[in-house]
Design a binder for these strands. Structure first.
Lengths: 349, 349
DNA sequence: TTGTACGCGTTATCAC
DNA sequence: GTGATAACGCGTACAA
């Protein structure tokens, strides 16, 4: 248990620390006899180099960090996150890297960024990204931002949030629904959607664009926005809140599949049938969207590819290459069975 | 971008590195004037201490590692893993730690363990745990083993795998089923279940015990074992393989919910109804087991609590405490609607 | 072929 | 009270 160091081996072998280091990392630089003597002593003592001390000089720690805006339990509860990790994991496997989940430490993003022993950061869905960007710049390691507001000279990976949201809302409107509830993702803005940033802002813009085309807006009598935590319970609570309304919605448009699934669970408990009594649309197209009954109509985004692309980008940056491109991956509506078609409107265009 | 070091600040302030370090970590040891001079220079230069260099002396890096036996994409595809992470994450939040996912690096567990800059390891479901244990011992950091074979003097967290498996199998047998297929988790043993270790061995023992009570065994004509990868596709493939049998099973007992869900997906595509045409039982009781149609009968295990307990244990060990206890958490069968009751046998006892 | 010195932040130890 | 010196651990450019 008492750590064996390179120094101890050097002393026992009667050589310098350098010789021991060469024996382990660049054996050709030593004579055969010296090499063998050092190696056998290292073996005998069960020597393991300290990874931290090693990376002092190599400037590489073999790990990338994923900076998340909330504590780990909160983000992992959304299956979206798992699939995103899967994409990152593919790159890690190929590049021989580990992955660190870096949540705010005691609420502080600065401490999180400064303390993480990683070669670079991926950021996911940072809302207050300005401050965090400055911290990352100070830290001096490369980083790639995912699901934030695109920023010049910073590599970013995003999806067409707005187009997907617009398609989702247009779909329920075309199906004849006019009493619409949006189950948003909790933002800290208490529903003041005009202050939204990043993914939330773009999705909201998409919803609004489709509503406007149908002559509706957020001020319409039967259009509501309720913010939910992005997990099953959040969706349940959101649904319960909606069902306390005097005029209940006929269609629920959720900003996240997991929220939609929570809403479906709550509906089942209330004996409210989907889609007969209420229609539901999600966002993300996580695998579980195909497991529900009925299967969930939702906006597909290439989650895994997004993670993979971002991680590949970061690995390049860590390797010294430069790539400040902004990537925007496509989204598309996947029509399944959770939306009831009341009336097929004539489609303009 | 050119990293600012403590040395540079010391030079500009005309003091030693020690003074700078004190200014940042133990301000009371400096005079007010010196303190302010150093602090303002550090601020001006945007100094950020290198976390690696810092942990050289502190011997703490603020991160625990989760050692997994497969590449990240393979483990994250099982929602079981997410829930386990959730439990660990709770401890990380409270203790202010990050979490590193440490897969085998280029296939080598040794490199993975030796290169990871963490204060301690959690291991999950290691099959060949002997070799890995030796590597961990050499590495000299504390570790806690989850879902392995209990080993004296090593802190271990497990569940009652055998009891749960036995209950699952007994349930389908009591329901009258006699043509049974087990969808196991791929082991590298090609179905040679007698060579199983850890979780796999214990679950298999549970299945066998229940089979034996019903006068069946793995040699019975209509009892089959098929190994699957632990994700949806694995379950699908397992089901397809079973349905090529001349005498198809009436009940499928899966070692993992995600495999059971994959089997249900494949059944739906074949227009085979669950539970009318085939019954399915899972293991784990992941949240998605309640989303399927029909909802999945399965063995509940306290996944999140398991992760939390293991992480708490590790945090204690990292903090210098000693606890070599072995913990075994309970399992219980959750009867939902995926098993068809053919004939209610008289229950003995 | 092998040794010396340096980099990085913290802290035990020592000097005034 | 105030602050400097040296050591920790490894890899590597450079010197010998």
């Amino acid at each position: 248990m008492a750590k064996v160091t390179i120094k101890e081996i050097a002393q026992r072998a009667g050589v310098s620390k350098t010789a021991v280091s060469f024996a382990l990392n660049d054996p050709s630089r030593l004579s055969e006899t010296t090499l063998q003597r050092i190696l056998s002593i290292a073996e005998e003592l069960g020597y393991t180099p300290d990874p931290i001390a090693r990376s002092m000089t190599t400037k590489r720690i073999g790990c990338i960090g994923l900076l998340v805006p909330q504590p780990i339990p909160d983000v992992i509860r959304n299956p979206f996150f798992s699939e995103f990790l899967e994409g990152i994991g593919e790159v890690c496997r190929e590049a021989g890297l580990s992955l660190m989940l870096v949540p705010p430490l005691k609420g502080s993003m600065r401490r999180a960024v400064n303390d993480a022993a990683v070669d670079g950061f991926l950021t996911l869905g940072l809302e207050t990204f300005r401050g965090t960007m400055m911290i990352l710049e100070q830290r001096g390691v490369p980083y790639v931002m995912v699901d934030s507001d695109p920023t010049p000279d910073i590599p970013c990976v995003n999806i067409d949030d707005q187009g997907g949201a617009r398609a989702a809302m247009a779909h329920v409107l075309q199906a004849g629904h006019r009493r619409i509830a949006i189950l948003g993702i909790r933002s800290g803005k208490q529903g003041r959607y005009k202050e939204y940033a990043g993914t939330l802002r773009r999705r909201m813009e998409g919803y609004l664009a489709a509503l406007n085309e149908a002559g509706l807006s957020m001020h319409s009598r039967d259009v509501h926005l309720v913010e939910c935590d992005a997990h099953v319970s959040g969706g349940r609570e959101g649904f319960q809140q909606l069902w306390r309304l005097k005029r209940q919605p006929t269609a629920i448009v959720a900003m996240s599949d997991i929220i939609a699934i929570g809403a479906m669970e709550a509906a089942r408990e209330f004996d409210i049938r989907v889609p007969d009594d209420v229609s539901i649309v999600g966002y993300d197209d996580i695998p579980a969207a195909r497991w529900t009954q009925p299967r969930l109509t939702t906006v597909h985004q290439p989650i895994r590819e997004k993670g993979k692309l971002a991680a590949e980008l970061l690995v390049k940056l860590v390797g010294g290459e430069t790539d400040n491109n902004h990537y925007v991956l496509p989204t598309n509506l996947v029509k399944r069975e959770s939306v009831r078609i009341w009336a097929e409107e004539t489609t303009a265009g």
